[in-house]
Design a protein around this nucleic acid. Structure first.
Length: 917
RNA sequence: GCCGCGGUGGUGGAAUCGGUAGACACGAAGGACUUAAAAUCCUUUGGCCAGUGAUGGCUGUGCGGGUUCAAGUCCCGCCCGCGGUACCA
């Protein structure tokens, strides 16, 4: 019977659905195993062939684990808040909720066709009030917590209040507002005036990881610095734990390294400097305390609060002009224009050791957000200080023996100290240590660890996000009661900012909080005694994605984010698959969020994702046609474009890859493709028009987008799944090249043919050897996530079994189970053809029996001086001496040895023989 | 600049612990079946050299060295590509 994939896939998807085979229960005696895909943002374009790559891999792994007897949680949901839907709403007036719902429905439909074993009843979407209730709830918990730096964990803010009441006599005298302001400096979710990445084009602030080279990652619009009152999350408090936690998790080294760099731990010292003639001191941070004798000037960040304190009257005007200029420069301009700039403040610091007077400058190469926003400049040993010193003609004192600083600074931390008083003669590393001891002992400063990681800005001036459960009384934020959650997103007349520049929620009429009635009421009723204005910002994209994996464990619980029982059962994600692009965003925020929930006792694991694999990107493979310049709609076949008569006279044009097969253009389809090509003429060598190709990003404008639906329709879901795996290792980026898909499809046709006239006869030794070779290989592959190498193994098994004419149930049944994780539909049909009534997902993974693999003989490659010359087949039981003897006696050996005597013979039993002549 | 990853036929890739490099697939060439096409099947297919031929020899995993009986795999020094990050003191 012919392999009718359309029928098979339709039939079994329906049967699985009806039987609810993928429903996951929390109450079983089975071992749990949690496999998760990073959930997608449902864009209007739908899935392309690149999206399912990771999903297929995780699906194979999930199905395998299930066959091995685990209770596997393998859910899918949607990261449904985000900019595109809102931008679309602004342009068309279509409510983001409607577009989002439509897009999600489309995604689900596409995903279902591929035959994933998701339990759809556990699905979540971040824009669902039943879901974002818990996002808001976590925010409230963060608002009501502070980070105890002694215990290194979050604790209730009420504990801090108690401490203030006991230890600080001032506390009781403060007004409520003053107390709230003080607490705000400790809360994990806090409000502050922050310098933010403001994107005027998007009308919102962006987190650091949403900005790249001064442009917004989404849209590529310029970003500038602005001070705004914003919500932030105190992620930086967790920097140490986020760093140390990396040692406990099984992620790729490169991803961990990216996070380590992002967290950016650096150990150094903070030192105090006095200002000459003033009662002011300021603190700097340095990792090179040893270079203290080389300090020839100091630099403050333009935003540093020290600036206004130290600046002299004569310099004030100039300094203010400079600061003003810095403020108006966008980050992009700063990056583009690396010219040295800065101004003298007129102030001098006193060198704590030499008492020398050191000029204090302001320059934007010092960042306010890092360390103390002030540095001691050592031009001889820091390239940035060097450039500054050169520009302003400041002295440069070399501190390391033999360092030539006439052309550039010597930044390496090596060599012997000179010009450095009591540090002279020491190696740099010793000098750093000694200097740290010195400043600690003399009280000049203290040893300090700094992190680059900054707090995450948590406000967005946007509509399509989670509302903050916050109202304002006397300018201070208060939470709405927990039992009133979720605070639902209100309707607005317009998705644009208001005329007065408020975020879109400023357009909502019903958006005030009645503290007496505990409900949302009309803004008109605000009286600031019982009815207060609500927060107008919404939460950023990473809010909803930070704890979604917990929700799948217990997704219809309306009492808790996740119950203790469900969390204690599933614990954490065992295998997480997704792209590297989330290395410094989602994967930091999620770990932070999880650690916070761990601190407050909601989850039992400190790390959310035990093992993480990054799937590579699927790139597009574009095709080109070559239009003859000045020709009459004539197109030159690719192989002719370098011929003298056409060279340099053609223009490559992207052509839709869907009308090209194996780089051969469907000429008729091309003429129909666009009106302008209606009378296209083709110049070819052999009547076939050959297209050129290139690897590019998969995108509409390159006409290289391949839709999985089309592949499923043409070849079936099983072929798509197999082929995506066959393309190469899961973690490597590779182009989608349909050229090889026929081979995989042919394999499925061929294996299907084995399942005719199945008998109960005893399998032969050869058949069993084929089977067990396959069991061993596939098991190893899946355990090691090496899915690409399994497909050849299946192909080889198929051809071996076909050659043996195998139709034995005992063999074929097992092959069906092995294939089931990869190609579940055909495997189900094969399983049933073997006479089974149950579903193949409920079968048991085949047991490997090594005894079927052992052979009586070994084929030894025989090398002479490392070159393989021939092979001999010898008894498996032969020891080294017997092998050596057999090889030496062989006719072939005489040929290669001639009269010479071998110097040495290496025998690796079971492997190889090397004769050294 | 720094950090990370990679470089194997015409193409995607395999070689999992240092042990026959190029499995498997695509493409290409030739052939069978067919009125023809599609589908299917068979043969050949890293390069070079010799031979009518079976075959034999040399060479070959980015480049140059090294370790080893043996290197795609380990070590040292380069080159190239990709990704991340960047005034982080």
């Amino acid at each position: 019977m012919e392999y009718n994939f359309t029928e098979i896939e339709k039939q079994w998807q329906k049967a699985w659905d009806n039987a609810g085979v993928y429903k996951v229960d929390n109450n079983t005696d089975k071992e749990p195993y949690y496999v998760l895909d990073m959930f997608p943002y449902p864009s209007g374009a739908g899935l392309h062939v690149g999206h399912p790559l990771g999903y297929i891999a995780s699906d194979i792994y999930s199905r395998y684990k299930r066959l091995r007897g685990y209770n596997v949680l393998h859910p899918m949901g949607f990261d449904a808040y985000g900019l595109p839907a809102e931008q679309y709403a602004i342009q068309t007036g279509q409510h983001p909720e409607i577009t989002t719902k439509k897009n999600i429905a489309h995604y689900i439909e596409q995903l279902k066709k591929i035959g994933f074993c998701y339990d759809w009843s556990r699905s979540v979407r971040t824009c669902d009030p039943a879901f974002y209730r818990w996002t808001q709830w976590a925010f409230c918990k963060m608002f009501n917590s502070y980070y105890d730096t002694d215990l290194q964990k979050a604790r209730p803010i009420s504990e801090l209040v108690k401490k203030f009441e006991q230890d600080d006599p001032q506390w009781a005298k403060m007004t409520e507002k003053e107390q709230q302001e003080r607490l705000m400096q400790y809360r994990i979710a806090y409000l502050s005036d922050t310098k933010v990445n403001w994107c005027p084009e998007l009308g919102t602030v962006l987190a650091n990881d949403e900005v790249s080279e001064g442009l917004s990652v989404r849209g590529g619009y310029p970003v500038e610095q602005r001070v705004m009152r914003q919500w932030s999350l105190r992620v930086s408090a967790y920097a140490g734990r986020l760093l140390n936690g990396l040692d406990k998790i099984d992620w790729t080294e490169s991803l961990k390294e990216t996070q380590r760099n992002w967290i950016g731990r650096s150990e150094g010292a903070e030192m105090q400097f006095k200002i000459k003639g003033q009662d002011t001191t300021f603190t700097i941070f340095t990792t090179r305390a040893d270079t203290i004798f080389g300090v020839t000037f100091m630099v403050l960040a333009p935003e540093s609060e020290y600036v206004s304190r130290v600046v002299t009257d004569e310099q004030r005007q100039e300094v203010e002009t400079y600061i003003d200029r810095c403020r108006h420069r966008t980050e992009r301009e700063r990056i583009a224009d690396r010219k040295v700039t800065g101004v003298f403040t007129g102030a001098y610091a006193i060198h704590p050791l030499t008492q020398a007077e050191i000029p204090v400058y302001v320059s934007d190469y010092v960042l306010a957000g890092y360390g103390t926003g002030a540095i001691m400049a050592v031009p001889a040993h820091d390239s940035r200080d060097y450039a500054f010193a050169r520009h302003f003609n400041l002295p440069i004192i070399p501190l390391i023996e033999g360092a030539d600083v006439s052309e550039q600074s010597f930044d390496a931390k090596e060599g012997r100290m000179i010009n450095s008083g009591f540090l002279n003669g020491l190696e740099v590393k010793e000098a750093i240590q000694k200097m740290k001891e010195y400043i600690t002992n003399t009280g000049l400063g203290k040893v300090k660890v700094n992190y680059r990681l900054r707090d995450a800005i948590f406000s967005r001036q946007r509509y399509w996000g989670e509302p903050f459960p916050v109202y304002y009384k006397d300018g201070m934020p208060y939470l709405i009661p927990e039992e009133c959650l979720p605070l639902e997103l209100p309707e607005v007349a317009s998705f644009l900012p208001t005329k007065t520049g408020e975020p879109p929620l400023g357009n909502a009429d019903i958006w005030a909080w009645d503290t007496a009635e505990n409900k949302v009421v009309s803004k008109k009723m605000i009286n600031n005694t019982t009815i207060f204005p609500l927060e107008l910002c919404t939460m950023p994209g990473f809010a909803g994605s930070s704890a979604y994996y917990l929700r799948y464990m217990d997704n219809d619980n309306d009492k808790e984010l996740v119950s203790q029982e469900a969390n204690n059962y599933w614990r954490q994600v065992n295998l997480y698959i997704g792209g590297t692009e989330h290395a410094t965003g989602h994967l930091i925020y999620s770990r932070f969020w999880n650690k916070f929930l761990y601190d407050i006792g909601v989850v039992c694991e400190d790390e959310p994702f035990a093992k993480l694999v990054n799937q590579g990107m699927i790139q597009g493979r574009s095709n080109f046609v070559y239009r003859l310049i000045g020709g009459n709609n004539e197109f030159v076949s690719a192989e002719l474009t370098e011929e003298p008569q056409y060279k340099g006279k053609t223009q490559p044009i992207h052509v839709d890859v869907n009308i090209v097969k194996n780089d051969i253009l469907d000429e008729e389809a091309f003429r129909r493709w666009m009106p302008e090509y209606k009378d296209a003429q083709f110049i070819t060598t052999d009547g076939q028009y050959k297209c050129g190709w290139a690897i590019e990003k998969m995108s509409k404008s390159m006409f290289n987008v391949v839709n999985p639906d089309d592949v499923v329709e043409k070849y079936g879901a099983d072929t798509l799944r197999l082929y995506e795996m066959f393309l190469g290792p899961i973690e490597v980026s590779k182009p989608w090249d349909t050229n090889g898909i026929d081979g995989v499809h042919r394999f499925l046709k061929k294996i299907w043919n084995l399942y005719e006239n199945i008998t109960d006869e005893e399998p032969t030794a050869d058949e069993l050897r084929s089977l067990h070779k396959l069991i061993k290989k596939i098991t190893w592959d899946i355990e090691n996530l090496s899915f690409n190498t399994s497909i050849p193994a299946f192909m080889i098994a198929q051809s071996e079994l076909a050659a043996l004419g195998c139709n034995k149930r005992a063999v074929l049944e097992q092959v069906a189970v092995l294939l089931a994780p990869y190609a579940p539909h055909i495997a189900e049909a094969m399983w049933h053809r073997c006479g089974n009534g149950s579903f193949v997902v409920d079968a048991a993974w085949p047991e490997l029996n090594e005894k079927y693999l052992t052979e009586d003989t070994v084929k030894y490659p025989v090398q002479f001086n490392g070159k393989v010359r021939f092979t001999v087949t010898l008894d498996k039981t032969f020891d080294k001496a017997q092998v050596e003897k057999a090889v030496l006696e062989s006719e072939e050996t005489k040929k290669y040895l001639g009269s010479a005597a071998p110097k040495r013979i290496i025998v690796v039993p079971g492997k190889i023989v090397n004769v050294v002549v």
